[in-house]
Amino acid sequence: MKKVGLIILIIVAIAIVTGLFLWFQPTSKVADGEADFQISIEALVNEGIETDDSLFNDKYVDKVIQFSGDVYSLNIGDSQSEIQLDPNTDETVIVRASFDPSQNSDLKKITEGDSVKCQCKFNGISIPRDPDDLLSEIIVTFSRCTIKK
């Protein structure tokens, strides 16, 4: 009887520790590890345009993607940094890749016009549907990025 009580106590303790771990687990700041996809922005955008939204989003959103492009603008900040890439495809595509400040030392080595390879979490693509939209570009957004050598 005492043994059963001890087992139950251990199980409850494990459940509490696991619960607390999951609850207090901080959000990851960087999409490191193995990329789920290595794809060009051109291919990603074309697939986003041609594929059904939900199929495309299920496949790519929240996944880690590695891609390349030329730096079009660079903004290094204390709370968040961002580079915009020119995907060399079409002038109506803007690629926004945001970085945690922990990556600023790598970003400071970059200047506008440089070619870079990034690995990021993909947050989605927005395609303007209305010709009157002020936001008339296709916007591709990534976060938790790192620069890959």
């Binding site: 609850w23 936001l135 957004t141």
Partner: peptide, 28 residues
Amino acid sequence: HQPSVAMSSNGKVQFRVPVNSFEFEKKL
């Protein structure tokens, strides 16, 4: 940190926000 915001000088305003770009302190 990734809202795309636009406005025109005659008062049109638009912003678009990728939902997955919202960052919380806790992963869960």
